[in-house]
Write a protein that binds this DNA or RNA. Structure first.
Length: 423
RNA sequence: GGCUGGUUGCCCGAGCGGCCAAUGGGAGCGGACUGUAAAUCCGCCGGCAACGCCUUCGAAGGUUCAAAUCCUUCACCAGCCA
């Protein structure tokens, strides 16, 4: 397995750039290699944009190498200019600390912290915070040429655009310092990241060469793109987060189920840990019997399990199966219905109160932003109660409509479901 | 510091005193087709107690029967000059 690691990545389309490929291959094949990937806390949760590189880390660990997931406790305070045409607004320190902890926890579930190649969690604040400004300028800054720093894509793009603050300009130095520290501390010899990180990673290699006369590697993976050119990982509701509070396992599962056919091959290769043969089989099915959606299902099942656990994946899948299409909700037993509905956006109303109109109910579940929007749905013929189209704006369900006297299933359009529970 | 141009709905971008909740495009949403896909076509796309009412066109004031449109001040952005 170790031997074919890079070949496997290549097959999966996961290699964008590397430093000396032969040297890297040799190091990977001769012994377990310690490598690191950094994640800056720019939000309270990682999102599926981060998942590709997380999966790649996992592949390396499965192949016997030792991962260091690094959370950017310090770099998160500064802000990476890469890929941005505007200065970031600085986040409050306490907020960043909170985010660091959350992200640490998320990263932990993807890697093994046991065994000979146990992962080691790192936080760059540990070595950055103690450095004084003067030490930083004399010991670290001295190794950087401003000319070179200016030529980095992330910086030059900003010079032509809205400009860049000294703070963000310094980002690459901090990241370079991280690589140097991990090189010294853990003999870390490979840094991976998204393709936009190439410049920052290379800055680290230079620093290692200058300070330690050492050599290390860089590997970047391509940005995941969609075939239609829109951004991967965004839905109407915004980003698809890994935190189940921010994106429910059900919504997460649905995200993969709803993937464009044209993207499924790429997604399977990037996110699935199945063998090449299994993936090929799924792709054949996709081509020959697209309506069955086997590849979509396998993808959704696997990635949801990876992120939210097998149980939640199972729940999401049966919820989808129960609620979608084939349709007679009344055939579901109470327990199945209840667990399916628990995955959906929902609202509760008291049995003693009279039941509001469909419009008000939908609004209460948060599926639409305003009553006008809900009314519009009704007018356009996209409003359903228990899978049956409803008549007019004034329509209000009755207690008799509720399954087992407690559940109403609202649907907006083809696939946007919500639940109402009478309590 | 001086001059000039700009700031419009989720984004881009028209409008330059009434016919403006504001043209057009994108995104998004609903419908038809299909497979919880794509493409295509049709429709919608500020809010509400809804044939009416309310709140929007950087901010605050002002002129007017009437302002996104005119005037004043302020803030920010861009270009030119110093």
């Amino acid at each position: 397995m170790t031997k074919q690691l890079l070949a496997d990545l290549e097959w999966r389309g996961l290699i964008s750039q590397t430093t000396d490929r032969d040297a890297l291959t040799k190091d990977l094949e001769s012994a377990p290699l310690t490598f690191y990937v950094g994640f800056d806390p720019t939000a309270p949760s990682l999102h599926i944009g981060n998942l590709a590189v997380i999966c790649t880390m996992r592949r390396f660990q499965l192949a016997g190498h030792k991962p260091i997931p690094l959370v950017g406790g310090s770099t998160g305070l500064v802000g990476d200019p890469s890929g941005r045409n505007e200065e970031r607004s600085l986040n409050d320190e306490s907020v960043v600390v909170d985010w660091v902890n959350r992200i640490k926890k998320q990263l932990e579930q993807f890697l093994s912290f046991e065994g000979s190649n146990a992962a080691v969690m790192a936080n760059n604040l540990d070595w950055t915070a103690p450095i004084s400004a003067l030490t930083f300028l004399r010991d670290i800054g001295k190794h950087f040429s401003v000319n070179q720093m200016l030529s980095k894509d992330s910086v030059s793009a900003r010079l032509e655009g809205g400009g860049i603050s000294y703070t963000e300009f310094s980002y690459q130095v901090l990241q370079a310092l991280d690589y140097l520290e991990l090189y010294k501390l853990h003999n870390c010899k490979l840094q991976m990241g998204g393709s936009d990180q190439w410049g920052n990673i290379v800055a680290g290699l230079d620093l290692i060469r200058k300070v330690e006369s050492g050599s290390a590697h860089a590997l970047t993976i391509p940005l995941i793109t969609k075939s239609d050119g829109t951004k991967f990982g965004k839905t109407a509701g915004g980003s698809v987060w890994l935190d189940p509070e921010m994106t429910s396992p059900y919504a997460f599962f649905q995200f993969w189920i709803g993937a464009d056919d044209a993207d499924v091959e790429k997604l399977l290769k990037v996110f699935s840990f199945k063998s090449h043969e299994e993936i090929e089989t799924l792709l054949v099915s996709l081509k020959e019997n697209p309506g069955a959606r086997e590849a979509h299902r396998a993808l959704a099942r696997e990635v949801t399990s990876l992120v939210h656990g097998a149980h939640n994946a199972q729940q999401s899948e049966s919820a989808a199966k129960a609620l979608f299409g084939q349709g007679d909700l009344s055939e579901l037993d109470e327990a199945t219905l209840q667990s399916a509905l628990s995955q959906l956006p929902r609202t509760q109303i008291k049995k003693s109160d009279s039941i509001p109109t469909w419009v008000d109910l939908l609004c209460a579940t948060g599926v639409v932003d305003s009553k006008s929007a809900a009314r519009r749905i009704v007018k356009e013929g996209g409003a359903y109660l228990n899978n049956a189209k409803i008549a007019g704006e004034d329509f209000a369900p009755t207690v008799e409509d509720a399954f087992y006297g407690r559940f109403l299933v609202l649907r907006k359009g083809k696939r946007d479901l919500a639940a109402v529970e009478l309590i």
